[in-house]
Design a binder for these strands. Structure first.
Lengths: 96, 96
DNA sequence: ATAAAGTAGTTTATATTATAAACCAAATTT
DNA sequence: AAATTTGGTTTATAATATAAACTACTTTAT
């Protein structure tokens, strides 16, 4: 009756990060923090989880002298997101 | 950019309960447990939270000699669900 | 009649998750 | 050179989810 909701994606902040990354090719830490309104600490933790799951890639480099972390979604991440949306449909499909 | 996801509804089991109650007028505890596959303990806790939020009504009575708990969604619950779905759209676009 | 098993739940303890506060290192400003 | 800002990470705590253990009663089997 109900499909399982991937717990890694069923999180407001991680879902927001994935949503952004789906539409922008790549985004850096500061951009993600600004767009989501999350604290840096929380964002850091959630990015780490998404990376460990293979849903995003995380590159750490420098923009001049300033550190810069750049994230991008992977194909695995895109698929997981699509499956999550399909699962959501079993809860809210047809309604509203 | 992203709407806030009502944390009371952003829970797999509570969302499943609300989804069922949206479509059935009323449902008893056992039916909800069977349809969701949840343990009785977990379901008991989540029903309590939904009731305290005013999203569902919970009536305790007897069917013959056997206790029976019947749940139904309230108008407040319907509205909250609709808002939750609208908020979800800000994360997943027109995909649902 | 009584023991065993089943039904319908609640309470409680524990594992997991989310979040923010505190922190670190380097760069910039005053 | 002290204070502030930037870009984060680590850690402590609060919140949440979940299952195990329990209560109370009913039904079934002996």
């Amino acid at each position: 009756m109900f499909k399982e909701l991937n717990p890694l994606l069923h999180s407001e902040l991680r879902l927001a990060v994935m949503s952004i990354l789906l539409s922008v090719e790549s985004a850096d830490f500061v951009y993600l923090r600004e767009q989501t309104g999350a604290t840096a600490g929380n964002l850091s933790v959630q990015i780490d989880k998404l990376q460990k799951a293979g849903y995003i890639t995380v590159e750490k480099g420098f923009k001049g002298k300033i550190p810069r972390t750049t994230c991008a979604i992977t194909q695995v991440g895109v698929s997981a997101f699509e499956e999550y949306v399909a699962a959501l449909r079993s809860y809210i499909g047809g309604k509203v």
